[in-house]
């Protein structure tokens, strides 16, 4: 049984980069969101197990989504994938409950390693 996955990024290319890095058998159960607001709607109405989240987005950004997840008390493993690589940002997202921080452009082996480390594959 493949987990329910959500990819949230305002860039189509970045979403595809994540998608092609995922295990083949997961690809049918992936949903996408183009911004933070869309992501929060999907998260609220579906039980999403794994979220790949960008930070710098127009409107509700990745930090807003992480705060929303905490507020809604959702049980979801969040992996942040961002171009904003400042150490302070990395610790901030982890304090807000993200499992891992990955820098863009995301590398397939780094992504799979992280999923493995958290027992998701």
């Amino acid at each position: 049984m493949s987990p329910s996955v959500l990819i949230c990024d305002d860039s189509n290319m970045a979403r595809k980069q994540v998608l092609r890095s995922l295990p083949q058998e997961w690809k049918d159960s992936v949903q996408i969101a183009c911004n933070g607001a869309e992501a929060l709607t999907i998260l609220r109405d579906n039980s999403i197990e794994i979220l790949f989240l960008d930070l710098t987005m127009p409107g509700i950004d990745g930090i807003g989504v992480l705060q929303g997840i905490q507020k809604l008390n959702l049980d979801c493993s969040v992996f942040v994938i961002s171009a904003d690589i400042q150490p302070e940002m990395q610790s901030k997202v982890k304090a807000l409950g993200a499992k891992e921080f990955m820098r863009k452009p995301v590398q397939s082996d780094a992504l799979l390693n992280n999923l493995q480390q958290h027992g998701l594959i």
Binding site: M57, S82, A83, D84, Q86, M89, P105
Partner: peptide
Amino acid sequence: QELINIAMGQASDQLARYLDTFVYLKV
């Protein structure tokens, strides 16, 4: 846009280190 975002993210990180502070990034 994505290539520029990534380049800008790293430029901001360098600037933040240089200024020893945190830089808020916008798209």
